[in-house]
């Protein structure tokens, strides 16, 4: 049981990081803190994917030293799995794009409500609805 926990500690840590990010997205009232939580959440998923490709023992990083132009066969069991790395390049860029869009929306929110606290924004909207309705 103990070795079950210790041998897979990467996966336990990714679950802890994901829960930290989820907590920040749900419980924090400041909008920038929610975005920081979203960033941590998505980075935890990338940690999971990269841990898929790790192999124990004496393995090489998937680069062929001095292999430019040569086409010799390699033993695939000696190299790490490079497919999750490729998928995660896309996932990192998607995470940054979402952060960029959310920050632009945040600037628009600040221009209109003059605050970045969710409670105060909801109070301003409620007051506006009562006077306008």
């Amino acid at each position: 049981m103990l070795e079950f926990i210790i041998s897979k500690y990467n996966f336990w840590f990714y679950v802890i990081l994901m829960m930290i990010g989820l907590y920040a997205m749900l419980a924090k009232r400041n909008l920038v803190k929610k975005l920081i939580g979203m960033n941590i959440f998505q980075t935890a998923i990338i940690l999971f994917y990269v841990s898929i490709g790790v192999k124990a023992g004496k393995v090489h990083v998937p680069i062929i030293i001095g292999g430019h132009g040569t086409h010799h066969a390699i033993k695939a069991a000696d190299y790490l799995n490079p497919l999750p790395h490729v998928l995660m390049l896309t996932a990192i860029v998607v995470s940054i794009a979402t952060t960029g869009v959310a920050l632009a929306v945040l600037i628009l929110i600040y221009r209109r409500y003059k605050t970045l606290n969710e409670d105060e924004i909801l109070a301003i909207r409620q007051a506006g609805r009562e006077t306008g309705a």
Binding site: V50, G53, V54, I63, L80, V86, L89, I92
Partner: peptide, 15 residues
Amino acid sequence: EMGAIDVAFTEASVA
């Protein structure tokens, strides 16, 4: 450290 160096320099430059 895990051997994913392309992810590492993407994360360094972008994130």
